[in-house]
Design a protein around this nucleic acid. Sequence first.
DNA 1: TGCATATAACTGACCGGTCAGTTATATTGG
DNA 2: CCAATATAACTGACCGGTCAGTTATATGCA
Lengths: 215, 215
Amino acid sequence: MPPLGTPVQKTPPRWRRRAESRPDEILDAALAEFTERGFDAARMEDVAKRAGISKAGIYLYFPSKTALLEALIEAKVAPLARQAEGIAAAGEADPLGALRLLATAAAYRLSDPMVIAVPRLVIGISGHYPDIAHYYRTHVVDIARTALERLIETAMARTLIRRIDPAAAVRAFIGPLFFEAMWTHVLRGESAFANPEKLIEQHFDILLNGLELRA
Amino acid sequence: MPPLGTPVQKTPPRWRRRAESRPDEILDAALAEFTERGFDAARMEDVAKRAGISKAGIYLYFPSKTALLEALIEAKVAPLARQAEGIAAAGEADPLGALRLLATAAAYRLSDPMVIAVPRLVIGISGHYPDIAHYYRTHVVDIARTALERLIETAMARTLIRRIDPAAAVRAFIGPLFFEAMWTHVLRGESAFANPEKLIEQHFDILLNGLELRA
DNA sequence: TGCATATAACTGACCGGTCAGTTATATTGG
DNA sequence: CCAATATAACTGACCGGTCAGTTATATGCA
């Protein structure tokens, strides 16, 4: 014990209680690790280290590795689907404008490796974690797809676009962007996302006018 | 020991030498296991069991688990890319017809779970096996994409379609089909592949004419 | 034709290493 | 003081890959 008057050696605490901020930090770390190594290959130990916590600490907040992935979907991409829903709902007055806004937002999201990482993970593990695939479908894809479909139907009803199968229109709308995202992030091809405005312009040019020569 | 005259019980051999057929059988088993469980989660033991051989036996034909995946790409999807190349080359006389033929062939391929399984695997592991992703890109995607692009450029040169960025046209051509394949096989949505002819018809209607109202 | 020999094909048992999840213990801070 | 928060150490199970030894078949030879 130091004598009175001796300045107390202020060793900072080895750790702090930060129950509020931990979950988010863990999620960020998990996303980074899962992205770099893939879900199965990622190690909880590394997620923990990256989050500045011990492995057991993770289990204070998440019951399992798969729960971490579900939370990741909820935190990182489900909000985007709901945002798309919002854009669609607000765009009933100008469906074509809303569609273009939606595509632009999507292009920016899809160009972000941290966002595209999640669907990539889901694709990878859908075979042996069907629950995760189902969760992703109901919490993300179905929501976005429905909003988009409604918007397209509104545009048709107003005779802003031709009458065609809405599902086919959805494919034509989102498919090319999705494909480009996979090309960019999985195969590391030269990305058209480098210039999102141009990408969207080209996309809508084909989507609305088609490839055929006009008279 | 059986008395003389007793027919010798011909116990069938515990295994047979079948060096020619083994590799294919192993590949089929690997594809099935990888598809069901995912690449990382699949066990070589199970692949072996499914192929009717011992685990060590696999290593007589393939040096590693990843080599198995590469061989799978070469055997199951690279031929399809080369077939696409063939269709494209033979279709210089009628580019639009060739394009439609290509799309139809693609639709049938993509509807087959055993074919789509391979790109799905590649997407899943591209993060931590970049070599595999690169192999897939150079042996499959680049080949198909180049063939497709050339065909589109030919069509443009003959003024069969408008002049637009060929890369954008490729996205519009393949994206919707790719997206539908993922929707079908990963998320188990109701599949438009159930009726390939209708799918292609809708696809080309939008691709060639666009969504806009014609005058 | 049939026995001896060679070797390609195959297997069972094992090893080194990994990792998700648990437990016993320590620290923090109200 | 004690409940919430955190950790270090541990466990049990799993799995890719290896290897010494076994079995099926081809070949040589009388």
